[in-house]
Simulated scan of single mutants.
Amino acid sequence: MIRWRGTLYRFHPLFTLVMLFSALTGYLVEALTLFGIVFIHEMGHTAAAMGLGWKVREVQLLPFGGVAVVDELGTVPLHEELIVALAGPFQHAWMILFALLMKIVAPSSLEWWNYFIEVNLMIGLFNLLPVLPLDGGRVLQCLFGYFMSYYRSLWLTTWLSLTLSAFVIGFAIYGWFSNQLPLNLLVIGLFLLLSNWFSYRQLPFLFFRFLMSRGQRVSRLMMRGTLAQPIVVARQQKISNILKLFMREKYHLIYVMNEKGRIQAILPEQQLVSGFLDGKKPGSAVSELFM
């Protein structure tokens, strides 16, 4: 583990196993090349996050990329998350262009540069798969956030990632019955499945963090002149269910209707958030805020 400028950098156990196995089997140069590519990939994420003012607490290096541990996910504008997510795969583009140039300048090292390009393509394309915590999964979650609620985007991408992770494991097991067990694919599938199961268990925490940041985010949206998006609910609707309708790039006015279809109250979203965070039970009805 290395700490630099307040950020902890450490190898994931998977990466450590790959490095040790490569050294024992005589592929140390290839392993060091892999490490360099993965490190540059993750530094792309880190540089973009820090450039936007994010606090990067930890960077975990994996054989196929990395994971940056930050507190800003779900609390910043969607375009910032898109920039940070795409900054990693973007590094492979310039590294491949550089390698193509070096193939012309230094043809004596043609075989190594071909390997360098192949690994860059493999890691770059793999990270664009729509599976969390890969970059493609982050991008998909951001795109969902533009037209659906934050909670639904979290739930949908997590379950999609769980399904695809299980598919990867199933494909690897199928290879076992065909006497061609891709062990690396099985390990990656298991890692993705466990990561997404942990993310699923963390959904309440992520949603709570989103609600905690809504006051500051709504103030910025209103200063930009963003139009309010109404949410029409019945008075007996649960506060917790209404909060799950909130979108990241909108602020909301909640129209509470009575049994006769008349507007009984118009509540700013922060009143619901405050009521929920101040100790209202999850099953409390919205009418309890204005009765």
Rank of each mutant, 00 (worst) to 15 (best):
W4F: 09
P13M: 09
L14E: 04
T16H: 04
L20S: 14
S22W: 00
V29T: 07
T33H: 01
V38E: 08
I40T: 14
I40V: 14
H41N: 15
M50Y: 03
G51S: 09
V56C: 14
E58Q: 11
L61S: 12
G66M: 00
V69N: 12
D71C: 03
D71T: 07
V76S: 03
V76L: 01
H79T: 03
E80D: 08
I83Y: 11
I83N: 07
V84A: 02
A85Y: 04
A87H: 04
A87K: 02
P89Q: 05
W94C: 03
L100E: 02
L100D: 02
L101M: 14
K103P: 07
I104N: 09
A106Y: 00
E111L: 06
W112N: 04
W113E: 01
N114S: 10
I117P: 03
V119Y: 05
N120E: 09
L125E: 01
G136C: 15
C142N: 13
F144N: 07
F144Y: 12
F147N: 05
F147D: 04
M148G: 09
Y150S: 12
R152W: 14
T158E: 01
L162I: 03
Y174T: 02
N179H: 10
P182F: 02
L185N: 13
V187C: 11
V187M: 15
G189M: 11
G189C: 13
L192C: 07
F198I: 04
Y200G: 01
F205V: 14
F205P: 01
L211D: 11
V218Q: 12
S219N: 15
S219T: 15
L221Y: 15
G225V: 02
A228P: 12
Q229L: 05
Q229D: 11
P230H: 08
Q236I: 08
S240G: 13
I242E: 14
K244Q: 15
K244D: 09
K250Q: 14
L253R: 11
N258T: 06
I266L: 13
L267A: 02
E269N: 11
V273P: 05
V273A: 10
L277H: 01
A285M: 13
F290S: 15
